[in-house]
Design a binder for these strands. Structure first.
Lengths: 200, 200
DNA sequence: TTGTGGTATGTTAGTGCTAACTTACTTCAT
DNA sequence: ATGAAGTAAGTTAGCACTAACATACCACAA
């Protein structure tokens, strides 16, 4: 098998394992076995276990960052408030639902204090936060939203989404709701909550 | 030092370490050093590292469960909606803020699939969820709240709170807001969002 | 065509260290 | 002098990582 393919294969398998058991809970031997190859091969492609872990996070973080950028653009192009928030919510929910490994990797590495996850939170996630804050601030100026704290309001909305992902990630969920339903209801609740009361 | 005291001391120190680095990231030697005692002492008090970990989770989970019960009771005794939700939000925010180790332990053990954290999520946290759902359902029946899905609405409110805790736990926060401010705004946003629009 | 070297991909069988856990012994208060 | 509290010094197993060797494939000069 050509080197590039094998490398990618190792990354895929290892991502799965690291996301299940964290960095120190995963053994290189196990990765090798799962790939169906001897342990030495791992170390031909990656300098160390640490380097492999970084490569995985880097890969996942890049991939996710791209997707999120896309979604942000799409959301920004929406003209009405409902479409804006609902698109954002739906896309993020779907993204994590389709790839649960990402959230687990981010949580593990966040807890373990790995740099790449910090970078992710401080760059990509920050863009999401900022977009939300700007949007809310703008609508307050417009007089459409009440005079709330845009930072807290943004966090409230983000919280609904992230927490749902959190629940999906950590426990077997006790409610069966589609991303669409959740996005609809979260958005409606939020918009009703922040709009001027005399507004339709 | 009497056995009971030493035991408690070990639990305290180990809780701190496990919450910082997870189960497999923490070494028994390190715990012993931090306690200022030889490693063998750890194993006189606990059968294994695993047993120590379970003891810690058990201790923390019980302690937290009690606190939460209290808070739920207090919240339930509140007559008006604002007081109910705001009390719940504030108490939970403060609880985790005062003891960040708990959230980290729960997250680590949740990710690692430890039983006790499952139990916690399925018993104590479930009570919180159920209380919220019942309350919301009741208010919908009363005609005070709009005909929303009580389960989703509860999750939305819970999400605001838990996510805030999540942010405090994982990243240096970029916003400085007190639990009181957050509780106020979350509650107001939520209540405005779910109430009948023609209601004051 | 064929032999020859070179390179890429792989394996086996370690090495050395670390970390959980143990044993055999010491100290000391009652 | 007995039992509770503690220690020093292992033992064992596992894990990251490596060295040495094996095989397949390919380019190309004879």
């Amino acid at each position: 098998m050509p080197a590039a393919d094998r490398r990618q294969q190792i990354v895929d398998v290892a991502a799965e394992l690291f996301s299940q058991k964290g960095f120190s809970g995963t053994m290189t031997k196990e990765i090798a076995d799962r790939v169906g190859v001897s342990e030495a091969i791992i170390f031909r492609h990656f300098e160390s276990k640490e380097a492999l872990y970084s490569a995985i996070l880097d890969y996942k973080v890049r991939q996710t960052a791209e997707q999120i950028q896309e979604h942000l653009k799409q959301a920004e192009s929406r003209k009405d408030d409902f479409a804006f928030f609902r698109t954002l919510a739906f896309d993020l929910l779907e993204m994590y639902r389709n790839d649960p490994t990402l959230m687990r990797l981010l949580m593990f590495s966040g807890l373990e204090g790995h740099k790449l996850s910090e970078i992710f939170f401080e760059s990509t996630m920050n863009e999401v936060r900022m977009l939300l804050r700007r949007y809310v601030a703008q609508r307050i100026e417009d007089g459409t939203f009440r005079k709330i704290d845009p930072i807290i309001a943004s966090r409230a909305f983000g919280g609904m989404i992230v927490h749902q992902v959190f629940v999906w990630t950590l426990y077997k969920d006790d409610m069966e709701r589609s991303s669409a339903e959740l996005a609809d209801q979260f958005t409606e609740l939020f918009l009703t909550g922040v709009r001027m009361t005399n507004h339709k």
